[in-house]
Design a protein around this nucleic acid. Structure first.
Lengths: 155, 155
DNA sequence: ATAATAAAAGTCAATATTAGTCAAATTAAA
DNA sequence: TTTAATTTGACTAATATTGACTTTTATTAT
């Protein structure tokens, strides 16, 4: 039914392992072989699904005995998370990245599920679809930053 | 013996599946082929018959393994109140009016204080300050409507 | 030690695979 | 007859897949 594509399947596989352990270390070629795809597909999966916005840090090494290590990080370990998140947002941001940030805030318990959903609909592509494509991203960034700043106060 | 047109037939087909399950995930091209119509007809059916007012939320993804997912949601009792509020908002709205709407939602118990504050900061004048004063109001209206629509259902 | 070779992972652009938009043409309803 | 709804298809956008080429690191040979 869902996740027909290999990228989603690989993502799930990696995340299922990360559900148990804090980090995972893979050999790119082995995973590629396991899922019968080209090695660079693993990079694609990592670049689109294991970003820092999503709460993952990736480190790798080439050459003999090379590896890719994916580490789950806790954004709240840092005292000034909000500053970091605001920097991540920058002047403009696409929906996927923004979504990941909200998701992370939810997972960290800084937003309720309902709050997250409301925010997501306010920055949704359909909500912010304008003639000018760039305005969409700029507005989204503004909204997100404004909400992040709001989270500094009451709680 | 009504529902002669394809759109109605496709609508019925999808809804018959949704009678059993809470959601359905389709491949646009497959359904189009099944009913011998162009793919964009599926969009037409969805846009005219699977709206949030009717209790459906639609999510889709393009690219390999793409899909269209239609989810049946439980409309809350306040759903028709929301219709009125959306009409009030219209195509554009200034901050004061928007504020009043949020305030009344809070007073009605449809928003928590924190949710209200988050929404207010996202539609604040400073957040939406653009060169063009009218754009500000248009964007605010879009955000507000999107949030109102989200309030139609839970979870 | 140094150079050559092997063994990884990274990059990037071309291509493939979906779905979305929009407006013109057609058909049905009022 | 006017208006609204539907049908159609050309064009656009998003996402995924693939592979040739590059870079980094380790190992082996000289």
């Amino acid at each position: 039914m869902q996740s027909q594509n290999i990228s989603d399947i690989i993502e799930k596989y990696l995340k299922s392992i990360l559900a148990d352990s804090q980090q995972i270390e893979i050999k790119r070629s082995e995973i590629a072989e396991l899922f019968n795809c080209v090695p660079s597909q693993i990079n694609y999966v990592i670049n689109t699904r294991f970003t820092i916005q999503n709460g993952y840090v990736v480190k790798s090494k080439r050459g003999g005995g090379g590896y890719i290590r994916i580490v789950k990080v806790n954004l709240l370990d840092d005292s000034d998370v909000i500053d970091d998140l605001i920097n991540m947002v920058g002047d403009e941001i696409d929906f996927n990245k923004a979504f990941q940030i909200i998701q992370s805030l939810y997972q960290e318990g800084m937003l309720t599920r309902r709050e997250s959903n409301l925010i997501i609909s306010s920055i949704d592509k359909r909500t912010l679809a304008f003639e000018n494509r760039q305005i969409e991203k700029i507005v989204r960034a503004r909204i997100l930053i404004s909400i992040l700043n709001r989270l500094r106060y009451d709680d």
